[in-house]
Every structure is written in structure tokens, then in C-alpha cells.
């Protein structure tokens, strides 16, 4: 993932906070936020993940051209079955880590660059062999200063995890 410009916007923070059920006014009320220690609306701890909105090639968002989306319409999937199984079924998020150098606020414009990290395999109890891969994303602000370092681990399984 490479995101050139991830503008931190108040209404995006408000919607994100609602979606995680967080009623803390520091995520939507500027007047309240002014009287808090941060002195401004700030982004909730996992908000950096929403940079996907600003990744032009993000593969888990239907393209505005309308074609090639794997979700259901007339048929249970809009694309060929083998491809959709790979994209929807096999991959899961295994770990996520954030290190905060500071908390972004509206007005910041971040950029993000991602580098691949380690890969490893493990024998799973419920899903056959597990293939792990790590990626490290650095979020920098408009001055080039590091704001958040994020490390994600994805896992692909040989078969579906039993419920």
C-alpha cells in the first residue's frame, strides 16, 4: 500500500468513531476537544487503518467503474469463483500493532509507505497449514515527521477456519 495523501478530516473521524461505538466527544466536538489535554479533535487509536480510503488501488473497495467486484449481485459473486474464494475466503487479519509518536488531528495530511516484512508458516489446529506475512507501514505528516508506525500480519489458511 502506498498512500500519497491521507487528509485527516473531522467528519471522517466522527463516522469512524460511530462505527466502533465510541461516543467520546473528543472525536466530534471541537469545542469540547479544545478543553482537553490534546486541545483538539484527535483520531481514535485504530484510525490509521482508514487510510485505505485514500489508496487508489485498494483491492477491497469496488472500483467506481463498477466492474470486477467480487460481492453478490444477480449471482452470489460478480467474478470468477476461484478468484473470489481466494480474495474473500482464505485471507484473514492475524495481528495489528501501532506505535504512536503522536495522535493525528484534523488538518494533518499524512502519507503512508508500506514495506513487506517477515513471512513464516505454522501448522494450525483448525485450518491446516497457516501462511503468515508481515507488512510495516510508516505514516508521516506534512513535515515528514513520523506519526504512526503500523505493523500488520496477514494469514492465509489451507482451508476455512472451523467455527
Amino acid at each position: 500500500m502506498a498512500v500519497e495523501k491521507f487528509p485527516i478530516e473531522a467528519s471522517h473521524i466522527m463516522m469512524f468513531a460511530r462505527s466502533i461505538g465510541d461516543a467520546n466527544p473528543i472525536y466530534y466536538d471541537e469545542d469540547y476537544a479544545r478543553g482537553t489535554e490534546p486541545g483538539s479533535i484527535i483520531a481514535p487509536p485504530t484510525f490509521a487503518q482508514a487510510s485505505a480510503q485514500f489508496d487508489p488501488d485498494y483491492r477491497l473497495r469496488p472500483k467506481t467503474s463498477g466492474d470486477g467486484w467480487l460481492g453478490s449481485g444477480k449471482e452470489p459473486t460478480g467474478i470468477k469463483q476461484e478468484a473470489s474464494t481466494a480474495a474473500g475466503g482464505g485471507g484473514l487479519h492475524a495481528e495489528q500493532h501501532f506505535e504512536y509518536h503522536r495522535h493525528p488531528q484534523p488538518g494533518d495530511v499524512l502519507s503512508a509507505t508500506t514495506k513487506p516484512g517477515k513471512t513464516w508458516e505454522k501448522q494450525g489446529k483448525r485450518s491446516g497449514k497457516l501462511y503468515f506475512s508481515e507488512s510495516v507501514t510508516e505514516y508521516r505528516d506534512q513535515k515528514g515527521e513520523l506519526v504512526i508506525t503500523a505493523r500488520g500480519v496477514g494469514v492465509r489458511t489451507e482451508r476455512l477456519v472451523d467455527k
Binding site: 471522517h12 462505527s19 487503518q49 477491497l60 469496488p62 467480487l70 452470489p76
Partner: peptide, 14 residues
Amino acid sequence: ASGDYNPVHTDEVF
């Protein structure tokens, strides 16, 4: 809000 529209989270049919 997050931009992650993987249908396994929202599309029961799929």
C-alpha cells in the same frame, strides 16, 4: 468508515 469493503463482512449471500 474504514474503507474495507471485503464482502465477508457485509454480504451474507457471498
